[in-house]
């Protein structure tokens, strides 16, 4: 019995090692072969991460998600953007907002359906929202060196239309 327990224990160690080593590189041959078996375990315990901090490139540049609030006639009555320029005493609050912005910029479907629904919950009189994503730029080192541009200047944002989210009843209540 002790041998049986020992075997199970070592199998667990091997399994956890496999998860730790293979999960960050799931596109590899081994990763693709084992993913169907380890996915439930990884998702359940939230061991899914690719450890790509500032990698491959330390992007992205400054990002914004913008919107126009539409009334029942489809006319824009107000606009806004996220994250706002508000400064927070605790950095973590800003960091999570930037993480959220990136999350939506990388997927138009999420942007439309999750962020659009959130805006509808916040603005209960809105009929819908027209959504955009905007990407700034990083100042060139030599431009900053010569004084042509400030390092804090995100430059002109390139705006791309995402679509229109119409508020549904369960989004409004």
């Amino acid at each position: 019995m002790a041998i049986g327990r020992r075997v199970i224990l070592h199998l667990f160690i091997l399994f956890q090692l496999l998860v730790v080593l293979v999960t960050p590189n799931r596109d590899s041959f081994l990763g693709q072969k084992v993913t169907p078996f380890i996915d439930p375990y990884i998702n359940f315990f939230e061991f899914a991460s690719s450890w790509n901090f500032f990698a491959p490139d330390p992007g992205p540049p400054p990002l914004l998600i913008e919107w126009e609030q539409l009334d029942s006639s489809g006319i824009a009555v107000s606009e806004g953007h996220f994250p706002s320029e508000e400064t927070y005493f605790f950095n973590d609050i800003k960091t999570r907002r930037v993480a959220l912005t990136r999350f939506f910029v990388y997927s138009d479907q999420r942007h439309l359906e999750i962020w659009g629904a959130y805006l509808c919950r916040r603005h209960r009189d809105a009929n819908g929202f027209r959504l955009w994503k905007s990407v700034g730029s990083i100042a060139n080192l030599f431009d900053v060196q010569s004084g042509k541009r400030s390092a804090r200047d995100p430059g002109e944002f390139q705006k791309t239309a995402v679509g229109t989210h119409f508020c549904k009843r369960d989004s409004k209540t």
Binding site: N25, D57, P58, L63
Partner: peptide, 27 residues
């Protein structure tokens, strides 16, 4: 993994990666 992933990035090869971080007003 973080280091190996950086090897795929042009900015890290060129040596300018830290600049693109320091000059990003969002971070």
């Amino acid at each position: 993994y973080s280091g190996w992933e950086k090897l795929k990035g042009v900015a890290w090869w060129r040596g300018e990666a830290l600049w693109t971080v320091l000059a990003n007003p969002q971070i």
